[in-house]
Design a binder for these strands. Structure first.
Length: 422
RNA sequence: GCGGCCAUGGUGUAAUGGUAACACUAGGGUUUGUGGAUCCCUCAAUCCGAGUUCAAUUCUCGGUGGCCGCCCCA
């Protein structure tokens, strides 16, 4: 028989327990922060009708960069490449039932069909944070504050990252003042988008190449664009009141295309070796149009797990693996299995997570397993324990043993764990 | 979608146009109620397919996969 390959499908991800532990750590921090701001979790199916994405952009993204197929009933379906259209669909559907302002979040995986590369795989997990129904700058302030607090709760220092803000409207009015055709406008926004990746002469050359004679006017007017718009300066001022100071205006920040209608922001890694955008978002007031619904103002951002992971890794901020299991019970002889199981169940009722070793191997081997699994405590159960009801609770980190009877074990473990955490 | 580099046990590395080696890991023992030590033993690999050749893991081509750029970026 041919052996089946152990490779996973190209570009998707396996999470071994130690990987999942890290991912969970990151998501738990995100969750704590957004829930502190009153956001409610929602979810949707990973499969959506393909039209949902066509309607939004209608671009080649849908044709070439999604997992789309026809189901057995001849319906076109797509594995979600992002969460926002599903979110917009859900909100449009139940608009009248919902109490605005609405604060929703989700942490889900998404799929895109493209060549995997650094930090971009075919499967990625993402936190989505969105607020609907707030037209004013309060939405911007809150979302950016949340982004900042997530970074801080992941133990990032203020010097480790930087927030950059722009107003798409000011870019648009700048481009309109140059009287460019749509194609040129589009190309200029592309050049803006990658400005921080290229040198200044490269930037200037690309502008000249695109605009030809018009380049002169462009550079003359460029100063106008570089003046911080009132809306942006007000936003920055408000955020500084919240002690968020690692923030600045970036007149070239674009973040994608037509999708955004106002303020956009991004969080940058300040590492000079890796000075790239980690995540961001912006205002999108028109997204419900496609459902024939009236506008609802919206502001949101998305944050992927891979960039967060790589950031934490580069700053040495990844947590050390600790299993959820508190205690490993080693059975000295098979005849004490029943007694051990009862002990395990009693302890579980006291909220101690207990795993029992049913290998019936030598006791030393069982202790080794507990150690390898990084479980903090072990107890060996045999004749003495059954007779006396006294146990030696062994702390694997240093081998110290603590005597306890059955009733005392839970609290002993809890106390020792608290000490360890400090 | 385009280009560059790469592909050997579970992991990390050797080597060779002719017997694929080492370390770690895993399993077993050294030790019959307490781990991280020592020593011994065992399991386990040349990505897939075709071509050149007496002989290919090695050379050539194709595929697949990985890494890195470009395009794109939700």
């Amino acid at each position: 028989m041919d052996k089946l390959s152990t490779e996973s499908y190209k570009g998707v991800r396996d999470f071994y327990p130690e990987d999942k532990f890290i991912q969970k750590y990151i998501f738990d921090k995100m969750r704590q922060v957004v829930e502190a701001f009153g956001y409610e979790e929602y979810d949707a199916s990973i499969l959506e009708p393909t039209d949902l994405y066509r309607a939004k952009t209608g671009e080649e993204i849908i044709n070439e960069q999604t997992y789309s197929f026809t189901d057995r009933g001849d319906r076109d379906v797509t594995l979600r490449p992002e969460m926002t259209p599903s979110l917009a669909r859900m909100i449009a559907k139940q608009k009248r039932e919902l109490a605005f302002p609405l604060r929703w979040y989700s942490i889900v995986n998404n799929f895109r069909y493209e060549r995997p590369q650094k930090g971009r795989l075919r499967e990625f997990w993402q936190l989505n944070v969105d607020m609907f129904g707030v037209e004013g700058i309060e939405a911007e302030i809150e979302a950016i504050t949340i982004a900042y607090k997530i970074m801080r709760s992941l133990k990032a220092q203020e010097t480790d990252f930087e927030l950059r803000v722009n107003d798409r409207n000011s870019v648009n009015s700048f481009l309109n003042s140059l009287n460019l055709d749509e194609d040129k406008k589009y190309k200029i926004t592309k050049i803006f988008d990658k400005k921080n990746k290229i040198t200044k002469p490269e930037f200037e050359d690309q502008i000249k190449e695109t605009l030809g004679d018009g380049a002169k006017e462009f550079f003359n007017k460029l100063k106008e664009l570089e003046v911080c718009p009132e809306k942006v300066s007000k936003l920055i001022e408000e955020l500084k009141k919240n002690n968020i100071v690692n923030i600045k205006f970036d007149p070239f920040l674009m973040r994608g295309l037509d999708y955004y209608t106002g303020i956009v922001f991004e969080v940058f890694d300040t590492d000079p070796e890796n000075n790239r955008s980690m995540f961001g978002g912006g205002r999108y007031d028109n997204l419900l149009d496609i459902f024939g619904e009236e506008k609802i103002p919206a502001f949101g951002f998305g944050m992927g797990d891979v960039t967060a992971f790589e950031f934490l890794k580069s700053r040495n901020l990844l947590p050390e693996y600790k299993p959820e299991t508190d205690l490993y019970l080693c059975i000295i002889d098979e005849k004490f299995k029943g007694f051990t199981d009862e002990l395990a169940q009693t302890l579980r009722d006291e909220k101690i997570n207990v795993a029992v070793d049913y290998s019936y191997k030598k006791i030393g081997d069982q202790i080794k397993k507990a150690n390898k699994k990084k479980i903090p405590f072990a107890i060996c159960v045999g004749e003495n324990e059954e007779r006396k009801g006294e146990f030696m609770l062994k702390r694997l980190s240093d081998g110290r043993e603590f005597e306890a009877n059955e009733a005392e074990i839970p609290n002993t473990i809890k106390l020792l764990k608290i000490k360890c955490a400090k």
